[in-house]
Design a protein around this nucleic acid. Structure first.
Lengths: 217, 217
DNA sequence: ATTAAAATAGGGAGTACTCCCTATTAATTA
DNA sequence: TAATTAATAGGGAGTACTCCCTATTTTAAT
């Protein structure tokens, strides 16, 4: 790729800004080309210089406009710029917001120089970096999947097949055509599936199918 | 908590076992009380000594019974014992399996002493540890959620409200009762929502609502 | 003040789904 | 072999949903 990574820094504290700049200055392939104490400064700078910028490192807590908003804007206007978000905390909400804002990395501020450099390199190479502290947050996502999967066994193979089609928005008639069976048979299966899954309607079946891992959202 | 952490080690290579024991021996609040070259050895030992064991550190690749299976068994029989799984690889499947087996930590073998100690301490304090290498794997889980959220804005507040109720398996009549409006009005909203979300039926709406983060599975 | 959008309500028709039955055939299990 | 389960098919009734309309009221925006 490029031999030098051009970096823009944003943090509302001058001392943090200086610290970051100092940490990065030791690496000769990293070049801090602009620093800003607020989000608007970054956006103004990018208006004329976005094309040669590779990475934005921004604090999350900034006055007026937050780092999350800045990230969103930058990703919207200049998708080629990678964004590494720095934060003091690892709260669920903030991490989620950062990910939804399409941040390429999330890192706690107390990480130190090594972690920061590792993060930057990882983003350059793999495209993303998330510090290990936030994994428990994502871990919860898995818990949802975990419970189900077992209960599907009540359903016969044919029933599972039909359940999948229902959850994929096939009508009974379409299912009948696809499986070369009568629409009445499909209706019977629907009833049996509803009973076995303890659902009131197709709406419940979709959620059941998702929980059971038969389809993805 | 307890001042000393009692640890059981499992790995099918004696040299790894020795290495682990040596690494941990320098920390005086960590005590390796048993080592085993296979999974059965661990289970036999725990039959009589489980109550004073705090942590099991196990390799994932072991003959006959895998570390994943061992983890499952231990978690089932002795839920108080924390399990740290060691692996050579960071493949999606293995990581998922480990998480589903309720492992409290997952760590790559090439991590070195510092990481191992960090992992053990993190598990003792926070309950979980996952090395940063596996985050990209879990990151994909989020990508699903990411795309939506934007498109929901087409819906009015009322429509969103009704969409949520639909996705929660309320019938039109129940929605009408709950919101003190006519069932005909609900029908109109349903039509408008279907059109805006480009769905063929309620089944599609459920999936839309999930993707948009309006409800959880 | 005019326009536009959102929420309300209804008529009427057609489709799709849910429920209650019975019944045959094939395959599996006791 | 007898009993059970799964998959098939149908009749008939009722409910729920979807679609095509019109129309009023309220709220928001130009």
């Amino acid at each position: 790729m490029t031999t030098v990574i051009n970096i823009v820094l944003a943090d509302d504290h001058q001392i943090v800004l200086d610290g970051l700049q100092f940490m990065l200055s030791s690496e000769k392939h990293l070049q801090v080309v602009h620093t800003s104490l607020n989000t608007n400064g970054v956006l103004q700078y990018l208006e004329t210089n976005a094309n040669h910028i590779h990475l934005l490192v921004t604090d999350i807590n900034m006055p007026t406009v937050s780092g999350i908003e800045l990230c969103k804007k930058v990703k919207e206007l200049y998708p080629h710029i990678k964004v590494l978000v720095l934060s003091m905390y690892s709260s669920t909400e903030i991490v989620k917001e950062a990910i939804l804002a399409e941040a390429d990395g999330y890192m706690l501020k107390d990480g130190g120089k090594e972690k920061l450099l590792a993060a930057i390199h990882k983003i350059s190479n793999d495209g993303t970096y998330y510090s290990e502290e936030i994994i428990p947050i994502i871990y919860n996502q898995f818990n949802i999947e975990k419970k189900a999967t077992l209960t599907v066994s009540n359903l016969s193979d044919r029933e599972k097949e039909i359940l999948v089609l229902i959850a994929k928005e096939y009508s009974s008639e379409q299912i009948a055509d696809k499986l070369f069976i009568s629409i009445k048979t499909v209706g019977n299966h629907r009833q049996n599936i509803l009973a076995k899954c303890e659902c009131k309607s197709s709406v419940g079946l979709v959620k059941y199918a998702i929980k059971a891992g038969l389809i993805t959202v």
